[in-house]
Design a binder for these strands. Structure first.
Length: 490
RNA sequence: GGUCGGAUGGCCGAGAGGCUAGGCACAGGUCUGCAAAACCUUCUACACCGGUUCGAAUCCGGUUCCGACCUCCA
């Protein structure tokens, strides 16, 4: 494909990506609710949309990337009678809600930074945009599509549905929702206040003991979950913007409600493209805190979890995520992670090999064919697995050339080097993790390698083996190559 | 129960009417004091039953199994 195509959940079709304004892209992505340590599932979205953002920038778009932090507003919804998620956690830990939010916001950002995710241009917090949310709620009320009851405000789904489609994004039929509404599962707090069980909260009245609360025209309270994204995306990207992204589990009710809120307020679906990534599963099941099968990112990086056979590096995780298409589920397993780890190392080595290739007078391989294939794959709804397959083809070419089995001229060698730089590093964001940043250690290791080389030259194998074995016991592996030895942490 | 999506070789995962996905593992080879590593080569699969077609993993119908959403969720 010669132009970027994206699957639009709203239309259920793959469409040519066209921007509202020439050369500019407004991209809003739903960020995490920061009430616990980030797990594997939290990290897929940031990586997927980081690659989208990088690719858009590669295509010379100026991207305004907004990713929010939800630090207020989620209702627990079950036995806790609408208690705010953040507040609940805070009570357990005996700290301020904002302290909890800050702790996990920092943890989240640190984890994805390690994975090479570029920071968004704007990272708004829900708690910092209460005024905007109140204004938006007021506008929806002014439009006659929301009502206040006893200090809370609810969105009037039935009134809205008279003039707009409700349920299109998530493929839901309102009649079915109404029919299913009587089910036993719907015992939400405040249900008796609603005109219709499908109405959702825009503003919730807070009890006096509720720590997180703000003044509003309807009394002290706090905003509903869905309104924050509507208010913040509108503030920074306008009434209508190009791409709204998030996980598929947010389709309903979150994104459906966002569309309803924005439409009620501005008359428009806020996003031209709705892009959703699929879930990470473990043994075929969604990873979720409530299911107790979550592995935190920190546990993955340290290897400290019963399900983990070893630690996996941040780039291994990134590579693992990108080896699957973003709209498919991705099943976690040690075997799969280990396969990614090895494949990634092969790519890195090949990139290094490519940087040292010597040009031949004639040429036997057209590297630009690989480049074209990479572009076609990305344009086809971000098919990163195919881009990676092309990178492995490039690795093969680099290795063959290095072995003298394939001739490349200067132009093609240059193209090959650029291929790794542009497609692997810049666009997929896969960068080398340096084995040791410790210069002293590097120096010591080089000294030992030199001494061992001398021992080998003297056929003193007892000594050379001792050096290798003792380093191995320390977790430092020596590999003998054709052009000398190298080392790495196991 | 409703809505939607899946079932691909030992594992992970692309593709989508005829043409190699790719990675990992396995096997063979090159290299090597030994070992490891690295590199090259190889391995031909699409849940089941019907149908459409010159031709189906890919389209249609049915069956079985799995998952997601419908309630907070990346």
């Amino acid at each position: 494909m010669s132009a970027l195509h994206l699957y639009n959940t709203y239309t259920r079709r793959t469409e040519v990506f066209e921007t509202l304004l020439p050369g500019r892209v407004g991209l809003y992505v739903c960020g995490p609710t920061v009430y616990g340590p980030p797990h594997l599932g939290h990290v897929r979205g940031p990586v997927v949309f980081d690659v989208l953002r990088r690719y858009l920038e590669f295509l010379d778009f100026k991207v305004r990337h907004v990713r929010n932090i939800t630090d207020v507003g989620h209702l627990v919804g079950d036995v806790d009678e609408g208690e705010d998620k953040l507040q609940k956690q805070a009570r357990l830990e005996q700290v301020e809600p904002m302290e909890v939010a800050q702790t996990y916001t920092l943890a989240y950002n640190e984890m994805i930074r390690l994975m090479g995710v570029l920071p968004p241009g704007i990272e708004p917090r829900a708690s910092g945009h209460i005024i905007e949310q109140i204004e938006m709620i007021q506008a929806i009320m002014d439009a006659g599509l929301a009502y206040a009851v006893n200090g809370s405000v609810y969105f009037d789904v039935l009134a809205y549905a008279q003039h707009h489609e409700y349920g299109k994004l998530s493929g839901r039929v309102l009649e079915d929702l109404i029919a299913g509404a009587g089910n036993e599962a719907r015992e939400l707090e405040g249900q008796e206040e609603k005109r219709n069980p499908n109405d959702f909260a825009l503003w919730k009245k807070a009890d006096p003991e509720h720590i997180m609360q703000w003044s509003s025209p309807w009394g002290k309270g706090y905003p509903g979950w869905h309104i924050e994204c509507s208010a913040m995306s509108r503030k920074y990207l306008g009434d209508v913007f190009d791409i709204h992204g998030g996980g598929m589990d947010l389709l309903f009710p979150h994104h459906e409600s966002e569309i309803a809120q924005s439409t009620a307020c501005t008359g428009h679906n806020p996003a031209r493209f709705w892009v959703h990534h699929n879930m990470i599963t473990i043994n075929g099941q969604k990873m979720a805190k409530s299911l107790g099968n979550g592995i935190t990112v920190d546990e993955l990086f340290s290897g400290k979890h019963p399900l983990l056979q070893q630690a996996y590096s941040p780039m291994t995780l990134r590579f693992f995520i990108l080896q699957a298409h973003y709209r498919g589920t991705l099943d976690f397993s040690n075997e799969a992670l280990q396969a990614s780890e090895k494949g990634l190392q092969r790519l890195w080595k090949a990139a290094e090999t490519a940087s040292g290739l010597k040009a031949a007078a004639h040429n036997e391989y057209d590297v630009n064919a690989i480049v074209a294939a990479c572009a076609a794959a990305m344009n086809d709804d971000l098919n990163t697995p195919q881009v990676i397959a092309q990178l492995f083809e490039a690795a093969r070419v680099a290795n063959l050339c290095n072995d003298g089995k394939l001739a490349l001229d200067a132009a093609n060698i240059e193209a090959l080097q650029q291929l790794f730089k542009v497609w692997m590093e810049d666009i997929l964001g896969i960068r080398t993790e340096s084995a040791g940043d410790d210069q002293a250690l590097d120096g010591v290791m080089q000294m030992l390698l030199d001494m061992r080389a001398k021992a080998k030259a003297d056929k003193n194998y007892a000594l050379s083996d001792e050096i290798r074995n003792r380093l191995s016991a320390l977790g430092l592996v020596i590999r003998d190559g054709k052009d000398g030895s190298s080392w790495s942490r196991n």
